[in-house]
Write a protein that binds this DNA or RNA. Sequence first.
DNA 1: CCTATTATTTATCATTTGTAAAATTTTTCT
DNA 2: AGAAAAATTTTACAAATGATAAATAATAGG
Lengths: 187, 187
Amino acid sequence: MTIDEILDNIHPLPAASKQTIKQYITAVSYPRGHILFQADRIKMTVYFIKKGFVRAYAHQGDHEVTFWFGKEGEPVISMKSYVESQKGYEDVELLEDCELYELNATDLQRLFQEDIHIANWGRRFAEQELIRTEERLISRQFRTATDRYKELLKENPDLVQRVALGHIASYLGITQVSLSRIRAEIR
Amino acid sequence: MTIDEILDNIHPLPAASKQTIKQYITAVSYPRGHILFQADRIKMTVYFIKKGFVRAYAHQGDHEVTFWFGKEGEPVISMKSYVESQKGYEDVELLEDCELYELNATDLQRLFQEDIHIANWGRRFAEQELIRTEERLISRQFRTATDRYKELLKENPDLVQRVALGHIASYLGITQVSLSRIRAEIR
DNA sequence: CCTATTATTTATCATTTGTAAAATTTTTCT
DNA sequence: AGAAAAATTTTACAAATGATAAATAATAGG
């Protein structure tokens, strides 16, 4: 997925504005296991996934709880950093070797003040993250772990193949044993 | 809480821009029980609570599940309507007689195209809703019902007094019986 | 102030989910 | 291919939660 597609997909930009924003975007690659964001650090960076899988997780006492998976075409931010320049909850880890587009959020904030099209692009970006986040909340509040697992299987069959079951179980809010039981039932 | 305070609290606006936006805002009052948003209707309106309590809930089979409470100073939107002009999940009901500020989102969208300060105000508005929504998700995913009830008690003691326990229980994702057990334990 | 209604708590039992450990399967490395 | 390591599933039991119904408490209307 190209950076043009990703940018336009969020909100179409006039050619000049798109050129402006693209000046601040670079392509980067990191290996599986690389930590993109750390819970205890503010990092004013926006990534877009060109290729690969990513997960966000938080430390909960002795174990870690995965609460987001990201795939090709999706943005990766630490919301608290991006929005409030504060530390967030999460580490973000690459689940496989990834190609990413990188954009410094401080540069972006300056562009928001200078270009109304970029300001509205940034608004749409936040709005779309808002909808995604609400959907995750609704899914969590209204669907059973079994249903949510089935949905994950359907939407991201490759992810379920490649990611450790423990991560998926914590994402679903259940133990790995329970997830095994679910898998046994729907087989 | 005045509309000026609410607007500036989201993001400071130059006097001219604030005047522009205020032209589209009206003060309205509705009685307890009034339905502000309906799940099956698109409603392009933004409200801000001047005074009162509000809840959002969705129908889950035969019973309803409350998933948000709003109080003085907070915005009330149907996110799917506001962001995507689509039907959302929720009904929004006034829990007591309320005074509200009302703003047509279609007008607002036009202003976004015309005034960069208002565009950035709209961006900050979405970003703040994003942080709020993420916090709700994190709270749900990482804290026990008991902890979340204690937090609700602390943050909104008056709400816990005035709202039916069934609503609070469904908000916490447990049954009313379980909530009664929790209350008995922490007493 | 009393009664009817509604809301909340308590009790009992069934079901679900978790914990811990063992068994099995899959993956990795030589 | 075969051994070692890691991941997943299964088992047995304990703990937590839900469902239902009964008991108690709170609220509203006359």
